[in-house]
Amino acid sequence: MADTPAVKTTMAKALNAALADALAADDRVVVFGEDVGQLGGVFRITDGLLARFGDRRCFDTPLAEAGIVGFAVGLAMSGLRPVVEMQFDAFAYPAFEQIASHVAKLRNRTRGRLSVPMVIRVPYAGGIGGVEHHCDSSEAYYAHTPGLKVVTPATVSDAYSLLRAAIDDDDPVVFLEPKKLYFSSAEAVLPARTEPIGRAVVRRAGRDATLIAYGPAVPVALEAAEAAREEGWDLGVVDCRSIVPFDDATVTAEVRRTGRAVVVTEAQGFAGVGAEIAARVQERCFHALHAPVLRVSGLDIPYPPPMLEHTHLPGVDRVLDTVARLQWDDQPDPRWLPRMEGAA
């Protein structure tokens, strides 16, 4: 295995390989959803699974997301390991009651006598020029629901490893796949096993400040850190990988080293996962901080139409502008000074 050469592959292909390897490894695994059979999924993540494993193991369902997730609850109760695909982030909303009231709670409601291990795969977030209802960052809804694990990969190797781990997990996992990274490619050795669910990773070490990101925001943070070198900042990047459970230990260790942190998320910021991360870091690292933890996020607007999405999405400039406000000269941030009475 150690001699397997790295090959250039995409996140989409890595996810496809993870599903195929899970189906081959465990008879209990079944993959289903809308268009996942003959078509191989609208993003081709299930490509070839029907042909290889047959329509008992990989099958299309009626077009009904609550039905798909509810059906998976019953299958999991019978001892199977369902992996379901929601076609797009916003199309998963009809399933939310099933997810919040049943998937997340069955273990707890029954004192552990029933459990419903399953993976709910959700292609999420934007940056692909999608029309409305195809680009939502829906992670906060799931992260705010106790009983769910919420995982999102940013690299090809993590996509494979985390999906295999999610399928093996005894808890239900909402597996959020950043659409804009599906066709990003990298050298990877598959099957890859990186780390278990719940571990963040330091993607780039830095001395001056730490950028904390997950999923689609990780490449943005890495690009910003690279660009920051020209401005004289040495920025580190932590990829959370798992939103629930959250790896406080890795994140806070990095922030304590640098004393400054910016949370970068693509999602709208208000009441979001970025707010939670910023609060956790502030609570845990107060005495190590030279500046408040700042956030860079999407705007608090419904996801915009394709021709305007670049204004919404946090990019390198918005990240660097925020880094510039990390109290380098210990002056109040003018944007947040109280307005003077009578001032023009």
Partner: peptide, 15 residues
């Protein structure tokens, strides 16, 4: 909501 669970459970058992 349990009607869909019943469908899945029954299918899984037969499976």
């Amino acid at each position: 909501t349990q009607t869909v669970h019943a469908a899945g459970l029954a299918y899984g058992e037969a499976y």
